Computed example of a mutant assay.
Amino acid sequence: MTSTGPTRVCFELRVAPDLLDEYVERHTPVWPEMLAEIAAAGRRNYSLFLGDGGRLIGYYETDDDAAAQAYLAASPVAARWEAEMARFFVGLEGRPDQAATPLAEVFNLEAQLASAGETPSTEESDAP
């Protein structure tokens, strides 16, 4: 199956449990200049989800993940942000934005509906 839409990237990191509150505070809000760099890199629909024990799941969409990674790797703003964020993560070597390993996507509703020749619907069905 060939994808015609954006690349969806999901990754997992582990935040040190004793630093969870500070990690959340640092993201409420993120520096405006860092937000601008993320957008300029071509990442959109970017979210982070925090679970029990410091499990952090990130998700974003982009048209060219390699170009987005390269842009952020060269960004002085991102370098400063990532240097400050590095201490929050457990078992990670290097910059968090460059060292996180993407998770494999095994299911996407829209892609499977398109492959089956159907379109997603948000309307309620009249069936009982």
Rank of each mutant, 00 (worst) to 15 (best):
M1G: 15
M1H: 10
M1P: 11
M1R: 11
T2C: 06
T2V: 14
S3K: 13
S3Y: 02
S3D: 15
G5A: 13
P6M: 11
T7D: 12
T7Y: 06
T7S: 12
R8H: 09
V9Y: 01
E12P: 00
R14G: 02
V15Y: 00
V15N: 01
A16N: 11
D18Y: 03
L20Q: 12
L20C: 02
E22N: 07
Y23M: 03
Y23E: 03
R26Q: 13
P29G: 09
P29K: 02
P29Q: 09
P29I: 02
V30D: 10
V30P: 08
V30M: 14
P32F: 04
P32C: 03
M34A: 10
M34D: 07
L35I: 09
A36V: 00
I38A: 07
A40H: 06
G42M: 07
R43Y: 07
N45W: 02
N45E: 13
Y46R: 00
S47T: 15
S47E: 14
F49K: 06
F49S: 14
F49V: 11
L50Y: 06
L50E: 08
G53Y: 01
G54S: 10
R55A: 15
L56V: 06
Y60F: 15
Y60K: 04
Y60D: 08
E61V: 04
E61H: 08
E61R: 09
E61S: 04
T62C: 14
D63I: 00
A66I: 02
Q69F: 06
Y71A: 12
S75M: 05
V77T: 15
V77L: 07
R80I: 03
R80Y: 04
R80D: 14
W81D: 10
W81H: 13
E82F: 11
A83L: 04
E84R: 10
E84W: 01
V90N: 03
G91R: 05
L92A: 04
L92I: 03
G94P: 03
R95V: 00
R95T: 05
D97N: 09
Q98D: 06
Q98M: 14
A99W: 01
T101E: 12
T101N: 02
P102C: 07
A104N: 04
A104P: 04
E105D: 02
F107T: 01
N108C: 10
L109M: 11
E110I: 05
A111M: 04
A111Y: 00
Q112S: 08
A114V: 08
S115I: 01
A116R: 12
A116M: 14
G117M: 11
G117Y: 10
G117I: 00
E118F: 13
P120C: 08
P120W: 10
S121I: 05
S121A: 13
S121Q: 12
T122W: 13
E123M: 11
E123N: 06
E124C: 02
S125P: 04
D126G: 10
A127K: 06
